[in-house]
Design a protein around this nucleic acid. Structure first.
Lengths: 125, 125
DNA sequence: GTTACCAGTATCACCGAGTATACCAATATG
DNA sequence: CATATTGGTATACTCGGTGATACTGGTAAC
């Protein structure tokens, strides 16, 4: 069974749909919002400091970054570490738990690029 | 190169960050929203007619269904077919392209289930 | 001719996510 | 001293996704 066949099978099996849709909506709930995945992506790119993350995500405001970081920390998707030296240094890192998102992020990046190409190609055609 | 290595390589390449954020946000935009997945679910369950889909999704309004169907058609996630007979018959079906979303959906289902387990485990612990 | 179904549109309104902008306390540099 | 950076908060605002409700134009059965 190929991945595609498996996908097709799951998508067309009525008996599992409720559970599948529930799991999907759980995942969507966790990642929804405009900035959570870009933030995870930025952290995975090696950014740890608040301003570094902010600069690495075009268009985000300090307010939204602050809010999202707080919420994601509460959801155990990332860890906030303060080194008590002066000047105070704050570092954000993704948790192991968050790393399990890696596969999804890659698939979504892949799909997003393909999609952009596809839609653009057909508009110009 | 393993999947993990590939992931690490992609996630740690700073040059592609803007493009990746864009791709991510595109994908998020396409699947987020309250009704898109339930609609795909309904279509996969065999519903094709507007009123059938509407009835199969508790709480959706004709307005939202209409809007979402239009948008998803524009994103080529589904196809709208009109048989010109009287009375006019309109049928919606998911496209092959929508099936290409399968990989992401599978990853998200997998993660959602894991997440549910994790949360449950921690609350009972 | 009244009621009901189909495939939608049209208006009005709410509300929360997201934006813009300014500000704060601390540290550092010159 | 002035200015800049870090790690954020506070306040006010906008905007679009969503909801509620009503309506249209056609077909059809009773």
């Amino acid at each position: 069974m190929t991945k595609q066949e498996k996908a097709a099978a799951i998508l067309s099996d009525p008996r599992n749909q409720r559970e599948e849709v529930q799991a999907l909506q759980d995942t969507i709930y966790v990642i929804c919002g405009k900035w959570k995945l870009p933030i995870i992506n930025s952290l995975c790119n090696g950014n740890k400091r608040f301003r570094d993350i902010e600069r690495s995500i075009p268009g985000i405001t300090t307010r939204m970054l602050s809010r999202e970081l707080k919420e994601m920390e509460a959801n155990q998707l990332l860890k906030r570490t303060v080194t008590a030296d002066t000047p105070v240094l704050v570092e954000y890192t993704v948790t192991d738990y968050c790393q399990s998102f890696g596969d999804i992020i890659l698939e979504m990046i892949k799909w997003g690029k393909q999609h952009r190409e596809k839609i653009r190609g057909e508009h110009s055609a």
